[in-house]
């Protein structure tokens, strides 16, 4: 699609693309910037029908996703906005939103009324969609508060809690608890994000990954931040999250994932390595340290530096989202409410 954007949107698009592709904006920030961009698209672009609007939003979505495949929140936010448009349109047209949601067993025989091609012009649509986007913006901006509020139920006095990575959600979750508990932080080599997390927490002990298993018998709870939650309930989390979860299973330690709704993705992990976010091997094995004989050997040594772990759903006990606590087996239900099946492929 050859699109002519207003200069203001063009500039904003460039800014977001450069932000996500350089990975200087991530997670929540990234979700909010995408949403801001989509708000300008809805507000300032020329479009007449819902179909045209959906097409434009999808185009933006594809550009942003191509710019950074690892940042799954972008696709989630775009799909949320697409559903907003579909629902608002259906509501303004005939007070029936059935056709946009996930099909149920009842629809198998009943059949679904075809959309009236989304081609009718509804003047109120622009205003309604912008209002709903603003609501979504607030929801995402404050999504950590309800999660942090749950820490009182989950973190108790004298607990020993294990975590990894360096996530704002985890910091907020720990700080909201009034109980005095101890925190163990996996150092998360080679990025050493664990060191930075420990500096933000009171009462934290940094431990190397190699000591995870040895310490697990004393731990009461594992808290893992979500990079994303996938459709089967699997958790994509900074490594060594999988290591923690596997050790926790041996010692029957409960594992809690912190997952604001904008991190729930409708994709399935078809190819786990695709999601691993491989970084430069320089941090694992500096090139300068290789003897020259190895450098010229064929084939050269392969060094992998994945930064994300895919934890299968059966190792997670509970997800804390901004709408409450859910089991991994319930994730599909949340997804059915958040996205339209028509938008899974952008």
């Amino acid at each position: 699609m050859d699109v002519k954007w207003p200069p203001q949107v063009e500039a904003q698009l460039k800014k977001v693309v450069s932000g996500v592709s350089s990975r200087s904006v991530r997670g929540q920030q990234c979700a909010l910037e995408t949403l801001g961009l989509l708000r300008s698209v809805v507000g300032t672009c020329r479009w007449k029908t819902a179909r045209e609007l959906l097409e434009r939003i999808r185009w933006i979505g594809r550009v942003l996703i191509d710019a950074q495949r690892v940042e799954l929140t972008v696709g989630n936010v775009v799909r949320r906005v697409l559903l907003i448009v579909r629902e608002d349109y259906a509501q303004l047209r005939r007070n029936d939103v059935g056709a946009t949601t996930t099909p149920s067993l009842h629809d198998v025989l009943r059949g679904r009324e075809d959309d009236d091609a989304l081609d009718a012009q509804v003047p109120e649509l622009r205003q309604n969609v912008i209002e709903q986007i603003s609501e979504l913006y607030d929801e995402i901006a404050t999504s950590v508060d309800p999660i942090a509020a749950m820490s009182r139920e989950h973190l108790h006095a004298n607990d020993i809690v294990f975590t990894s990575g360096n996530s704002d959600d985890v910091v907020a979750f720990f700080k909201a608890s009034r109980a005095r508990f101890e925190t163990l932080v996996a150092e998360t080599a080679p990025s050493m994000a664990g060191h930075r997390l420990a500096a933000r927490l009171p009462n934290a002990t940094v431990v190397p990954e190699a000591a995870v298993y040895a310490l697990m018998s004393r731990v009461h709870k594992i808290v893992l931040p979500a990079h994303a939650v996938l459709a089967n309930g699997a958790l994509l989390t900074p490594s060594p999250g999988y290591l923690l979860a596997l050790a926790a299973k041996q010692h029957k330690v409960p594992v809690i994932g912190l997952a604001p709704l904008y991190r729930l993705c409708p994709q399935y992990p078809h190819d786990p390595l695709d999601l691993a976010d491989l970084h430069s091997p320089q941090d694992v094995l500096p090139y300068a340290l290789l003897p020259s004989s190895v450098k010229h050997d064929t084939p050269p040594p392969q060094v992998l530096n994945p930064t994300l772990d895919l934890v299968p759903p059966d190792l997670i006990d509970l997800y804390l989202t901004n709408t409450g606590a859910h089991q991994p087996s319930y994730v599909y239900r949340l997804l059915a409410e958040l996205y339209s099946p028509l938008d899974h492929d952008l």
């Binding site: 099909p103 149920s104 067993l105 198998v108 459709a231 309930g233 319930y330 599909y332």
Partner: peptide
Amino acid sequence: TDLGVLTPAAVSDELIRL
């Protein structure tokens, strides 16, 4: 299934809804 990719838990959910 033609209703989407479901976990086994989702089957009872669909039947209950009907």
